[in-house]
Design a protein around this nucleic acid. Structure first.
Lengths: 338, 338
DNA sequence: CTGAAAGCGCTTACAG
DNA sequence: CTGAAAGCGCTTACAG
């Protein structure tokens, strides 16, 4: 990189001190109008901009927010990232992003990096492996270093930190209730992300809705597996053994898979089978049939989490953790047409 | 953030100078084995890690690579980002990410930020608006500042910079030739990203393949529009006026849309209509029917671009721009079954 | 083998 | 209103 013009250079050119230049540029009231004008003009002329590394060293801050996402295999986290970016930019923060690929080991390495003083705050969604192993020590390290952390989306974890997400249990509860209100009762659940706390919450929502008023439902309606092939097999079996009427599907993969398997069996969506799934507005409407989905407003999640984090960074911590639970919404498309 | 232990602190505790501590930790051969050992032990004990802001200020580098992506509405760029992350981490760089949302204005703002010395190098994919307006001055600013830039994916732009992408023309040419080799001739093209240079290249590939051996094809086979509704309409018309046999579809949206419209018209994929599109391995196999696609190996694009950039950052510039064109591959699924 | 000193580019309390 | 000085946390040429 070419060396840019510095405060010192400007000072020399203007025959004033570095302090004067600095103060002029930072709008200090100490400096005379005339000097300010001279300095600003020259700065403009030379396209001066302060060296952020130096500013940050002085300020003992980094101006960075670290964002840790578990994966990018669907657009959900990408959307959240979009929301985070909007809000971070507004507040003058840069985003340093990390992708853990659902790995605890990678997560630990990243933590190590960040705690070296790379960021003023952390936004994270805990990896699947971490949740499975319940190994959270590395996350608490941040608290030791007094680096504020806000968890987003995957907030059904046993960590007393600030959290921003949706009510996963209620979301699915509502979806099932909706289907039941339309007279459907043979409703299955399909899930390929069973290791996540939020999946457990969703499953609880399903169970709660299905057991009201105290009706038992067959175990086999609950189709949970990390392996797509396995999921397919179980799904086929259920469809062969029962006259199913609907499915709620807890993630991208299981949503697409369910739609596919149902159609392979020459069943019609929505005539024979209704589906409410987790996909997003970029895809859902263009699928055939289009799939009704639970909109989690990922942009909103990102923005809300970032706002909270920025507040934590700037204000002296009133160390009581906050949990923000945002509303979800069912978007009806082909697959729930009556 | 809590103030961490510094070199100075360690020096005081050990009764040696700051220089000695620094050298010991950085493996300088100047220092006695014994001292090195003492220093390292204490550093370990206190979990010392150097303040990167200070190190960077001293080194006049930032340790950051800026990544500028135009959108995240499909997983393509997310995948590329994954590749970039892998390679960047290997080389000790942090990633600062920006999303332009295809906006020239945002792109300019980001440039401004980065040229303030936020990053040692830039990986970027030019926004649609930028390409449409052919306004590239802000990009050349980087060259002025001697910040190396590598363009990725969207490399069909009139900029003499390092580039890493795929041969878009050849990719589609091959796809069309494949379809023709199976005896198909009524082959349409659907595209919702006409503003991009790479779309033009793909369209050229289509035209070249279709015109061999010098057969004219109807203009209406070429369906290009940024508006999904419009695309749908044109597509419907073509299907009504012709006995179409296949489509090549140039992006996510047009791929899903084509599959949907064809099925709405009660045509069977692949029996009546074959499709080769742009989707990726995370989705394509789970769609119904699954869609054959051109695999651009996005991870590879990301890694290759990052390797090139790191080289540019580290080595004195042999200022001849390099263009790396990576191979694509047709992945055959349901939609091209014969 | 060790340390004092300069300096990276800034900001800011303090003096004048 | 202006400037000299100290300092943020490091690295490194230089002296001893």
């Amino acid at each position: 990189m070419r060396s840019k013009i510095t405060l010192k250079d400007l000072a020399k050119l203007l025959n004033v001190s570095v302090s004067t230049v600095s103060k002029s540029l930072n709008g200090s009231p100490e400096i005379s109008e005339n000097t300010v004008k001279r300095v600003k003009e020259l700065a403009e002329l030379h396209n001066y901009s302060p060296n952020l590394t130096a500013v940050n060293l002085k300020r003992k801050s980094t101006g960075n927010i670290a964002v840790i996402v578990p994966n990018i295999s669907n657009t959900f986290f990408a959307k959240v990232l979009g929301g985070i970016e909007n809000e971070a930019r507004k507040n003058g923060y840069q985003l340093i992003t990390y992708i853990t690929n659902e790995s605890l080991t990678v997560e630990k390495q990243i933590m190590e990096l960040i705690s070296n003083g790379l960021a003023d705050g952390v936004l994270m969604s805990v990896s699947a492996e971490t949740q499975k192993s319940k190994n959270y020590e590395h996350i608490y390290r941040f608290t030791e270093y007094e680096i504020p952390v806000v968890l987003f989306d995957r907030i059904n974890v046993d960590l007393s930190l600030d959290k921003v997400g949706v009510d996963d249990m209620q979301s699915i509860y509502n979806a099932v209730q909706y289907l039941k209100s339309k007279g459907l009762s043979k409703i299955g659940l399909v899930c390929s992300i069973g290791d996540l706390g939020l999946a457990q919450a969703r499953i609880d929502g399903y169970k709660a809705a299905m057991s009201e008023p105290s009706i038992a439902f067959p175990e086999e309606f609950l189709i949970v597996s990390n392996d797509p092939e396995n999921l397919k097999k179980q799904l086929s079996l259920v469809l062969e053994n029962n006259v199913m009427e609907a499915f709620v599907t807890l993630d991208y993969l299981s949503t697409l898979l369910t739609s596919r398997v149902v159609q392979e069996k020459a069943l019609n969506i929505p005539k024979d089978i209704k589906i409410i799934g987790y996909v997003n507005e970029d895809f859902a409407p263009f699928l055939w049939p289009s799939i009704s989905y639970i909109d989690q407003h990922p942009l909103n999640i990102g923005e809300t989490a970032t706002k909270l984090l920025v507040k934590r960074i700037k204000e002296p911590q009133p160390k009581e953790t906050v949990e923000k639970v945002l509303k979800t919404e069912i978007i009806h498309l082909d697959s729930t047409l009556l």
